[in-house]
């Protein structure tokens, strides 16, 4: 087998460690960067290098940020008594894009998954409870994914938060916009029926 230059081999190896990228895609990306020229490769290299240098985890909400505390946690116009709990930093972006939530966030960085050996200690649950204890939180909105593991995480957190007398809510479940009723599963339809409202 013809050997590749070491630099090419190293980049293919590094790229194929990324989620969703196999050796074939990694090779294609590597050769694209070779063809694109040194400048484009340098821009990418600088962006990758700056990723960890210029970001930090907010010590309050555990979101990825440029400052600690992050801009959301220090924004006085936001409701500091409501926390929306999400699994990943990208979920914060999704909820912020709605423009309808003005409280604070807490990022767990995953969900409980016994089969992957991810328990409560691997998630940022304790910092959340510390905020509930110390910051006068009145409502926790559990916005974990509507999956079996997301629900398990929500149940676990709600049980821990119970003694603090805080109101714990879960995002509504039901039919997605643009979906097709006949393809909805029984559980989703039941939840949609249970959560129906007057128009």
């Amino acid at each position: 087998m013809a050997s590749m230059p070491r630099a090419v081999d190293r980049l293919i190896d590094a790229l194929s460690r990324l989620p969703g990228i196999g050796p074939k895609t990694a090779s294609r990306l590597t050769y694209h960067l070779l063809r694109a020229g040194e400048e484009e490769a340098a821009v990418l290299a600088e962006a990758v290098a700056a990723l960890h240098r210029q970001t930090i985890m907010c010590s309050r909400c555990c979101n990825i940020s440029e400052t600690d505390p992050c801009a959301i946690c220090t924004d006085d116009r936001r409701d500091h008594q409501t926390i929306c709990v999400v699994e990943e930093p990208l979920d914060v972006v999704a909820i912020e894009n709605t423009g309808n939530f003005h409280g604070l966030y807490h990022v767990l960085h995953g969900h409980i998954s016994p089969m992957e050996r991810i328990g409560p200690d691997e998630l940022r649950i304790e910092p959340l409870l510390a905020r509930v204890r110390e910051d006068g939180i009145r409502e926790i909105i559990l916005a974990t994914n509507p999956t079996l593991e997301g629900d398990a995480t929500a149940i676990y957190i709600s049980r821990l938060a119970q003694p603090y007398g805080v109101s714990v809510t879960r995002l509504a479940l039901g039919l997605p916009r643009g979906g097709d009723l006949e393809y909805a599963d029984r559980m989703t339809l039941s939840e949609a029926l249970a959560g129906r409202r007057l128009i």
């Binding site: 998954s113 016994p114 089969m115 079996l148 629900d151 398990a152 149940i155 676990y156 049980r159 599963d185 029984r186 559980m187």
Partner: peptide
Amino acid sequence: QALEVFEELWHDLLRFTYACYAAELVD
């Protein structure tokens, strides 16, 4: 097409964890 959804697993953490254990064993 779902034929059977084990709904209690969604509401009970202990039942969910036993189901995880069974699935991991089979896997």
